[in-house]
Design a binder for these strands. Structure first.
Lengths: 338, 338
DNA sequence: AAGCTTTCCGCAAAGCTTTGCACTAAAAAG
DNA sequence: CTTTTTAGTGCAAAGCTTTGCGGAAAGCTT
């Protein structure tokens, strides 16, 4: 294979000077004469020299790599966030190593282990839906390994994190349904230990209260966030003696599953049943009818998470939680009153 | 910050033996006595030792990192392929470094440069739609840097690559339309320099021929693969004096754009106009009507690309092209005959 | 008991970079 | 003309691992 990269040594040999002189010349050290600098830089350019990050890493004890763990790689939501993280990290000269937990707590732990073996400088994580035991996160903190959460968060006092105004947004949705004349508003939630479930449920309840609507336990369903599980949840709602006339899905995937189920049963959206999602997936406008949803600033979430990460490793700032604003985008799926 | 990882040195000091003994003990070198091995391994376990990949990389001249460049990170198609690459790479103990070209040739070149600076051992690339000048790929080859293409490929004799049977698939689509009674079948293609455009066009034409249908130049449109550009292309088709009664979109995104446009104009799918996509995006079943499409084995594409990559770096095998099989999945968007 | 074989282990180099310190010239100062 | 600066370079260590080779101690042979 051979050595494809030129090293300082190569340059030094070619110029018959020492390695240190080459190193200093390239970084404009005042000890080096002007002509020498010129000569060295010239050759470095020609030979396409770039410092070996392995050697630098060894020396400086930094790898300029960040580990990122997401529940999956293939939904728009996460890939867009990753895109945001990458964008900020690259500006800082960092690379990201991506791992997917597939919503499995086991795989999450393994990924953490592997990424640490690869010597990432820290981790940016969206925990798996399955993760109830968070001791592995605490271990990371005790080892003083930089950690940032996004979307699904925990340990708010010890870990910086980025979320959206979940409660506010959920409330907006409920209020919107109410204004549109819907009265039996259902909520398909996610696993109850996740902050997003709790907060959105809170907002949903608060919205009901503000609208003067009663809380109906049977209208609060939950799923594990998978498409199939969401389908089942919707089925249960439709099988109720008194089914809902509006459904709020905890995210767009859930809403898509619900949409399909509703149509299968012959109901019209939005006339028989109104539907709203959460996240504003790119495909929300592709389905028919277009799905009302909450815009989730995914790219910005990623950038912000990266920003918090660098705050953590470069300064001694306190952990902090950033809450990004969302918007309700009204589309046909929930608009009866034209 | 401190040193969070234990090194051989740490272990050696603690046991009052030399570093080399520790190293050998851990890898069961015959020179080391049984008890010594046991002692060392015990401590290594306790201290959670794992070899420093930077040091190993420096020594072995390998980084165990693969650079992956995709046109974008956020569509299901690419993220699924990345998932496949990652899965295979991880099995081999490799990590992947992902970069997105955003369909820009400029960004593609920059990404290549950055990844090489990070010392990836080679690259797996899906070229940007904008890339017509492929000299930067040739440079890579001349530098003997391992390279694998997928989906959008070029230089077939010099680079291993993974694609699907594009021509065959496109032909299947055209034949399917014909059987369903469609007679003015349009094709919205991509940039003409891409192999996927050429091959699918070929298949489309061949399908027309086999069906005894004439070739109508005005029914062959093209776009730059973006949603908006596909919308415009569909608009042009609908504005024709004699618009098509069937549309084959070069991928699902294009088909989704077309679907929206068609509905905006008040046409019914599949009755007025049939529609078929390519890729079988997860969302194909979510839209209404569900979209007939070609299943693209994305995950497998990724795994195969990684496999070819390792073939390239580990053996001296010849470059080869792997063509994966696809299937036409008939859904409502193109089925008139029940 | 002297020499030889095992058995175990440590030294040191290589891979690449940065940087404190030491050193050599030449120039300036006295 | 001798001494002190100053400019310009090189040496070597550190960061971590692997591995060929040399070396020491112990056990064995004769």
């Amino acid at each position: 294979m051979g050595n494809r990269h030129t090293s300082l040594k190569d340059l030094a040999k070619e110029l018959n000077i020492s390695i240190s002189t080459v190193s200093r010349a390239l970084k404009d050290h005042p000890d080096i004469s002007r002509e020498m600098k010129k000569k060295v830089k010239q050759l470095a350019m020609e030979k396409n020299y770039s410092p070996n990050p392995l050697a630098m890493g060894l020396l400086k004890q930094e790898t300029r790599m960040i580990g990122v763990i997401v529940p999956d790689l293939v939904t728009h939501f996460y890939s867009s966030i990753i895109s945001g993280i990458e964008s900020y990290a690259n500006e800082k000269g960092y690379f990201i190593l991506i791992a997917s937990s597939n919503e499995s707590s086991q795989k999450e732990k393994e990924s953490i282990k592997n990424l640490l073996k690869a010597r990432v400088e820290g981790l940016i994580i969206c925990m798996s839906s399955e993760t109830t035991d968070i001791s592995h996160f605490k271990t990371l903190l005790n080892q003083n390994i930089p950690l940032v959460f996004f979307d699904r968060v925990c340990l708010p006092n010890r870990v910086s994190s980025v979320t959206v105004d979940n409660k506010e947004a959920a409330k907006k949705i409920t209020r919107h349904f109410y204004r549109q004349g819907y009265r039996r508003i259902a909520f398909i939630s996610g696993p109850s230990h996740l902050n997003i479930s709790k907060e959105r449920l809170d907002g949903y309840l608060s919205g009901l209260k503000d609208s003067g609507l009663p809380i109906a336990k049977e209208l609060i369903e939950s799923c594990d966030l998978s498409y199939d599980s969401a389908s089942s949840a919707m089925k249960r709602l439709l099988d109720l003696e008194n089914p809902p006339d509006a459904v709020f899905g905890i995210n767009d995937t859930v809403a898509f599953a619900a949409m399909k189920k509703i149509r299968e049963r012959g109901y019209q959206i939005p006339d028989d049943i109104g539907l709203v999602g959460f996240t504003d997936d790119f495909h929300a406008t592709v389905v028919e009818p277009p799905l009302t949803s909450i815009t989730h600033p995914t790219f910005e979430t990623g950038r912000k998470a990266a920003e918090l990460f660098f705050e953590r490793i470069q300064t001694s700032a306190f952990p902090r939680t950033v809450i990004l604003k969302t918007n309700l985008v009204e589309r046909e799926s929930s608009v009866k009153i034209k």
